[in-house]
Every structure is written in C-alpha cells, then in structure tokens.
C-alpha cells in the first residue's frame, strides 16, 4: 500500500490535501448550521451596510418605524441608502443611529405586545 502511494506521490498528495479541505469544510458547515439554528433571530447586530428597509425586515417591524427613528422624510422616492451613508449625511455616528433604531424597535415591540 505504502509502496503504491510512493509510486504516485503527486496524486496521493493532492488527494490527501483534498481530504483535509473536505474535513475543514465539514467542520465549518457544522458550526454554521448550529449558528443558523439559533432560535433567537434578533441577535444580528445592526451594521452600516444595512438599508432602513433591511433593518425593518430583519427586526420584523414596519418600515415607517425605522424611517421615523432615522429622521428620514417620507417623500415617496424610497432612494436606497445604507446606514453608513445616512450617518454621514446627518453628521451622526453609526452608533447613534444604532441606539435610536434599537430603542424604536423595542418600543414598537412593546406596543404590539411581542
């Protein structure tokens, strides 16, 4: 057996590497499955890449609640902006926006009794 592997060194080595990579992905996939099946979907922190509508959807609140918390006008244009861009245009920090959003989401939930 060993003699055979020695007579095909490159193929054997590439195969061994492929097996290691497969094992690595198996572990990573198992971990991400456990993370995914976490029953609390509200753990996802609010981040700068998110749009107001994305925040509304991921926190399961009405888009108007998010728009009000960010002080966005409802001009009906619905231009796509990320929280990073909103923070810059309003001269506020992302952290400020995040706190305002979390508070608004909490209020909205307590009103609906969630």
């Amino acid at each position: 057996m060993l003699k055979f592997f020695k007579s095909h060194p490159i193929l054997s080595m590439v195969f061994a590497i492929a097996l290691v990579v497969t094992a690595l992905f198996l572990v990573r996939f198992a971990v991400s499955t456990i993370v995914w099946s976490d029953p609390d979907p509200h753990q996802q922190p609010i981040a700068g890449w998110m749009t107001p509508r994305y925040v509304a959807r991921s926190r399961q609140v009405q888009p108007e609640i998010v728009a009000d918390a960010l002080g966005l006008g409802r001009d009906g244009t619905g231009r796509r902006l990320t929280l990073d861009e909103i923070a810059v245009s309003q001269d506020r920090s992302l952290e400020e926006l995040r706190l305002a959003l979390e508070a608004a989401v909490r209020d909205a939930r307590s009103e609906t009794g969630d």
Partner: peptide, 15 residues
C-alpha cells in the same frame, strides 16, 4: 433577513 449567517452557511455548504 439574517444575511451574514446565511452567507456563512451557504458558503460552507458549497465548499
């Protein structure tokens, strides 16, 4: 609605 977690999961599955 859980985009970062979904990308991890799908990426590892595809890999």
């Amino acid at each position: 609605s859980r985009l970062p977690d979904l990308v991890e999961l799908v990426g590892n599955w595809a890999g």
